[in-house]
Amino acid sequence: MASQSSQLDPVKLGLFVSRMESVCEEMGAVLQRAAFSPNIKDRLDFSCAIFDAKGELCAQAAHIPVHLGSMAYAMADIVDACEWRPGDMVVVNDPFLGGTHLPDVTVIAPCFDDAGVLQAFIANRAHHADIGASAPGSMPLSKTLEEEGVVIPPTVLVRSGVLDKGLLNAWFGDGQHGDFIAQVSANRTGLLRLSEVISALPIDFAVAVNQLQNYAEGIARRRLAELPSGSFAFTDFMDDDGFGHQQLPIAVTINLSAEGVLVDFSGSAPQVAGNINCPLSVAAAAVYYVFRCLMPDEVPVCAGLFRPISLSAPEACLLNARRPAAVAAGNVETSMRITDAVLGALAQAAPELIPAASQGTMNNIAMGGRGAG
Rank of each mutant, 00 (worst) to 15 (best):
R188T: 02
H177P: 01
V184H: 06
L191M: 08
K165S: 14
A182D: 12
H177L: 15
F180A: 13
A200H: 03
D164E: 12
W171Y: 12
F172E: 07
A186T: 05
S199W: 01
A170M: 12
S185P: 00
Q183K: 07
S199D: 10
R188E: 11
N187V: 04
G166P: 02
A182I: 12
T189L: 07
N187P: 05
G190A: 13
G190Y: 04
D179F: 08
K165T: 13
G173V: 11
A170E: 07
G175I: 10
E196T: 05
A200R: 03
A186F: 05
I181R: 05
G173Q: 09
L194E: 00
R193S: 00
L194G: 03
A182E: 11
Q183W: 08
S199A: 15
L168P: 02
V197D: 03
G178M: 14
T189F: 00
L194R: 00
L168S: 12
D179R: 08
G175D: 09
W171N: 14
A170N: 07
L167W: 05
F172H: 11
G178L: 13
G175V: 09
G178R: 10
D179K: 11
G166L: 09
G166N: 09
A186G: 11
H177F: 11
R193V: 00
F180H: 14
E196W: 01
A200I: 02
A170R: 06
S195I: 01
N187C: 14
G173W: 03
A182M: 10
R193T: 00
D174P: 01
Q183A: 15
A200T: 03
S195M: 06
R188K: 12
V197F: 08
S195V: 01
L167A: 15
G175W: 04
E196I: 00
Q176I: 03
G173Y: 03
N187R: 09
R193Y: 02
D174I: 15
